[in-house]
Computed example of a mutant assay.
Amino acid sequence: MSELSKPKEDLQDPVEAQGPMEAQLLEAEEDEATSHLASYLPASSSAPLEALPQEILNEMMANLMKFLLLSYRAKELTSQAEMLKKVLRDNQEHFPVVFSQASHCLELVCGVEVKEVDPREHIYIMVPNLGLTCDVMLSSGQSMPKAGLLVLILSLIMQNGDRAPEEKVWGALSRLGVCVGSVHCVFGEPRTLLTHVWVQEGYLEYRQVPYSYPARYEFLWGPRAYAETSKWEVMAFLLRIKERASRAFPPLSAEAAREEDEAA
């Protein structure tokens, strides 16, 4: 039997696999992280959800994201029926919007894409974005997926002529609440992640700008990034995300377009 076909009861929850103290700390960290992730997306303006307080919507999305992340770590398939039974329960009428926003948030922040593999039975699989394998070690449940941040960094490098000045990268991340010197609930300490972990894994290059004095540094794509994905795939992903955001928030998109026209 393949890993993806194993029933839920045969697989150990990553939290339960830890010792008592480690399990409590990991579960607390994961609850905080998934709640934080849920706040990345506003509630839908659809009529049925307007009656629910924002805190309840965020909690529903956070619970669904936590469930999907557990399935991702365990390399399991899941289904709409299972999500309704185990997560939303008495809020089944809200499933379409909550599932859509939870999936979108996971894709943007964690780099985990939720794909439907059986449209008739509504069965889904969670896979890393763009083929990036930087989170393969997460099956132990020791950390939240971070491929979404890596995709953002790779796109920033592309947009800056294939070499992004360090100050531009930190400036962009700070606007997302990811700041150097501060431990983020999902990404940890960003300087260590970008300049050590991903450099050692080959996803990024971090080097001094030639002849710069005082010394300035820049980020480039690493050899492993080129091996696992491509600029075309990253560009297509960004366009897909932009198109999805335009459909979800057309008034905001129209206003942004006017501002861009005026600036031009």
Rank of each mutant, 00 (worst) to 15 (best):
residue 221 W to E: 13
residue 17 A to M: 10
residue 224 R to G: 08
residue 203 Y to M: 11
residue 112 V to A: 14
residue 212 S to V: 13
residue 229 T to I: 13
residue 254 A to E: 09
residue 98 V to F: 02
residue 140 S to A: 08
residue 236 A to V: 10
residue 120 R to K: 14
residue 159 Q to T: 02
residue 203 Y to C: 12
residue 86 K to T: 02
residue 53 P to C: 08
residue 166 E to V: 01
residue 149 L to Q: 03
residue 41 L to F: 06
residue 133 T to F: 05
residue 131 G to Q: 00
residue 150 L to S: 00
residue 20 P to C: 13
residue 130 L to E: 00
residue 250 P to S: 10
residue 2 S to K: 06
residue 105 C to A: 15
residue 146 K to E: 09
residue 134 C to W: 01
residue 132 L to P: 12
residue 225 A to Y: 15
residue 172 A to Q: 14
residue 193 L to W: 08
residue 81 A to V: 04
residue 48 P to S: 09
residue 203 Y to S: 05
residue 121 E to L: 07
residue 133 T to N: 06
residue 121 E to A: 12
residue 153 I to Q: 03
residue 255 E to F: 08
residue 196 H to V: 15
residue 187 F to D: 04
residue 90 D to S: 02
residue 198 W to L: 04
residue 46 S to G: 12
residue 195 T to C: 08
residue 136 V to H: 06
residue 258 R to G: 00
residue 9 E to T: 01
residue 198 W to Q: 02
residue 116 E to I: 00
residue 175 R to Y: 08
residue 190 P to C: 12
residue 163 R to M: 12
residue 34 T to S: 00
residue 40 Y to I: 04
residue 65 M to K: 02
residue 25 L to D: 13
residue 130 L to Q: 00
residue 1 M to Y: 08
residue 154 L to V: 09
residue 6 K to N: 05
residue 21 M to D: 11
residue 67 F to A: 05
residue 191 R to I: 01
residue 142 Q to G: 04
residue 123 I to E: 01
residue 261 D to M: 10
residue 198 W to N: 07
residue 247 R to S: 08
residue 162 D to T: 09
residue 204 L to P: 04
residue 12 Q to L: 12
residue 194 L to K: 13
residue 29 E to A: 13
residue 235 M to Y: 05
residue 244 R to T: 14
residue 135 D to N: 07
residue 145 P to I: 03
residue 46 S to C: 15
residue 189 E to S: 08
residue 236 A to C: 12
residue 91 N to Q: 04
residue 153 I to N: 07
residue 77 L to A: 02
residue 252 L to Y: 10
residue 8 K to Q: 13
residue 170 W to D: 06
residue 129 N to E: 12
residue 248 A to K: 03
residue 125 I to N: 00
residue 166 E to R: 09
residue 33 A to S: 06
residue 202 G to F: 11
residue 195 T to A: 11
residue 64 L to P: 04
residue 114 V to W: 01
residue 212 S to T: 15
residue 204 L to W: 05
residue 52 L to R: 13
residue 117 V to M: 01
residue 130 L to W: 03
residue 213 Y to R: 13
residue 111 G to P: 15
residue 38 A to W: 03
residue 164 A to Y: 01
residue 187 F to R: 07
residue 215 A to K: 07
residue 164 A to T: 01
residue 256 A to W: 01
residue 120 R to W: 05
residue 231 K to D: 13
residue 171 G to L: 04
residue 224 R to V: 10
residue 48 P to V: 14
residue 191 R to N: 11
residue 15 V to I: 14
residue 259 E to S: 09
residue 1 M to E: 10
residue 228 E to L: 04
residue 136 V to G: 06
residue 161 G to P: 13
residue 28 A to R: 14
residue 49 L to E: 05
residue 35 S to E: 13
residue 59 E to I: 10
residue 263 A to V: 00
residue 90 D to F: 03
residue 112 V to P: 14
residue 71 S to E: 15
residue 53 P to N: 11
residue 36 H to L: 06
residue 114 V to H: 00
residue 135 D to M: 01
residue 38 A to L: 05
residue 258 R to P: 02
residue 97 V to K: 03
residue 47 A to S: 11
residue 80 Q to L: 03
residue 109 V to A: 11
residue 227 A to N: 12
residue 19 G to C: 14
residue 215 A to I: 15
residue 171 G to E: 11
residue 25 L to C: 08
residue 187 F to H: 14
residue 9 E to C: 14
residue 13 D to H: 15
residue 239 L to F: 13
residue 164 A to R: 07
residue 89 R to F: 09
